Simulated scan of single mutants.
Amino acid sequence: MELTSDRISLTPFDQSDFALFVELSMSPVVMEHVYTPFTLEEATAAFEEKTKPWTINSHAWLCFGIKEKTSGEKLGNIGIKITDHKAKIAETGFMIKPGAQGKGFAGEALKLIKDYVFNALALNKLTATCAVANTGSYRLLEKTGFTREARLRQNTVINNRYVDDYVYGLCRHDL
């Protein structure tokens, strides 16, 4: 399976995504608003979990590597996890390496994921959660049609500090 736009392609995680996943997961700069950076062992275990076979009935993440089509450069990753199979709700999350941020790649990846979730998987809602200080992520979510639905106080612990999160949602009928 491959999801493509003019500039990028998304393919399910494989071993070629390992190095960048580990780099991003261990980076204090990239993880500042996401979670406490992983150790190498934690990053390796997380990657192995995210590369397991996935079906529409899975309770795990389906993760895609984001690659620039012309150069073949790995830019980051994006994934979905069905959080409520009966209500047809999935969550999405993404990480883009610093050198690729602010160039529209995450927006393109998010648009591809939205199409996949609503058209190929026929789900009803897509959600995303991000730290209130993660202005880049929440602005992107808003720009791509998501609605801020809640602020969850002290919802996440990052680097031993409680962090508030915003929850965003996009329903099929919003498109």
Score class of each variant (00 low, 15 high):
36 T>L: 03
73 E>Y: 01
14 D>E: 14
5 S>N: 11
86 K>R: 10
101 Q>G: 01
16 S>R: 15
24 L>A: 08
137 S>Q: 13
35 Y>T: 11
134 N>W: 08
29 V>P: 00
164 D>M: 04
156 T>R: 15
156 T>G: 00
53 P>E: 14
126 L>Y: 03
117 V>K: 02
75 L>K: 03
50 K>Y: 06
172 R>K: 15
164 D>I: 05
167 V>K: 09
45 A>C: 01
21 F>G: 01
131 A>Y: 07
11 T>D: 11
127 T>N: 13
4 T>F: 03
66 I>M: 15
41 E>W: 08
143 K>F: 00
167 V>T: 14
32 E>A: 09
113 I>M: 10
68 E>N: 05
64 F>E: 14
56 I>C: 03
138 Y>E: 08
32 E>Y: 01
131 A>Q: 13
82 I>H: 06
34 V>D: 07
131 A>M: 05
2 E>P: 00
118 F>R: 04
39 T>C: 11
74 K>S: 14
56 I>Y: 01
36 T>G: 05
8 I>H: 04
146 F>G: 08
99 G>V: 07
152 L>A: 09
166 Y>I: 06
115 D>W: 05
19 A>S: 13
142 E>F: 04
110 L>D: 10
58 S>D: 10
58 S>P: 00
36 T>N: 03
61 W>F: 13
92 T>P: 12
3 L>A: 06
35 Y>E: 15
120 A>V: 02
121 L>K: 05
24 L>S: 09
25 S>I: 00
167 V>W: 11
125 K>A: 12
